[in-house]
Computed example of a mutant assay.
Amino acid sequence: MTTSSSSLSDVTGIIAVITGGGSGLGLFMTRALAANGAKRVYILGRRKNVLEKAVADIGTQNITPVQCDITDQDALKSAVSFIEKDAGYINLLVSNSGISGPSLKIEFTNTFHVNCTAVFYTTIAFLALLDAGNKDQTYQNGRSQVIATSSIGSFKRKITAGFAYGVSKEATTMMMKVLATYLVPYRIRTNVLCPGLFPTDLTTNLIHGTDPTVEGSFPLDQIPAERAGTPEDIRGPLLYLVSRAGAYCNGNCVLTDGGRLSVTPATY
């Protein structure tokens, strides 16, 4: 039996939650799911105006903004309650919110709080809705799934965006691998996206020039692809993991970095 590439990457009917879905990589992923048949994409974030602008800019009817600070467990419970009443279940949680961080004591702890601790509590908060997604079986492309946006910083030994950033992302990557084991009884998969350098609000101080995504913007010894990532470079891996194409993946780390880890000291 032959299978078309379009059916392999189909996400029609999925109900998803994306934290930090109104800006940066989260917005790229929101657009990817909304444009490829998602039944509903709930985008969570602290800033209501950012969420509403994202909905207006995308212009489709299948995106719902939910104001929520993922570091606040009461706010998480409120968001879960709203989505449970609105949809009853979800098939996918993309825990994408994150911050960079310097090495100072207070900021160090806060970076871990957002990049790792909040990922854990967000996952736990949505477990019941992910379980309900498995039981509903409307979406046929694999079991319910949690995807965390980590970073190639979790493998690099070179400090980028502050000492706390890479270490917190390494903790998140390992935590998702552990969850891949412990969520087996619930038939919920977990995987990790590890992006390299993309033009977002978090990387403005690292990128210079008019368009860093043009090939030739970076030397080979920094990024072998010689450019920063484009929206397609994160949308493709996301759609792979979410669709039938990636339905056999569990506990995986998908790198999308233009080869950057191959030219820097790393532990991957």
Score class of each variant (00 low, 15 high):
102 P>H: 04
104 L>S: 13
104 L>E: 13
107 E>N: 10
110 N>M: 09
110 N>I: 03
111 T>D: 03
113 H>E: 13
114 V>W: 05
118 A>P: 05
119 V>H: 12
120 F>K: 06
120 F>Q: 09
120 F>N: 09
121 Y>D: 12
121 Y>F: 15
122 T>Q: 09
123 T>D: 04
124 I>N: 10
128 A>P: 04
128 A>H: 13
130 L>M: 08
131 D>S: 15
131 D>F: 00
132 A>N: 12
132 A>T: 01
133 G>K: 04
134 N>I: 07
134 N>H: 07
137 Q>F: 03
138 T>P: 00
139 Y>L: 11
140 Q>H: 08
141 N>E: 12
141 N>V: 01
141 N>D: 11
141 N>R: 14
142 G>A: 08
144 S>E: 02
144 S>Q: 03
145 Q>D: 06
145 Q>T: 13
145 Q>C: 15
150 S>F: 05
152 I>F: 08
153 G>W: 02
156 K>M: 15
157 R>I: 08
158 K>M: 07
159 I>V: 15
159 I>S: 06
159 I>P: 04
160 T>I: 12
161 A>T: 08
161 A>N: 14
161 A>H: 14
161 A>C: 12
162 G>L: 08
163 F>I: 10
164 A>S: 15
164 A>M: 09
165 Y>P: 04
165 Y>G: 03
166 G>Y: 05
167 V>A: 12
167 V>T: 14
168 S>P: 05
168 S>L: 07
171 A>M: 14
172 T>Y: 03
173 T>S: 13
175 M>L: 15
177 K>N: 05
177 K>M: 09
178 V>L: 12
181 T>P: 00
185 P>M: 11
186 Y>H: 13
187 R>P: 00
188 I>K: 06
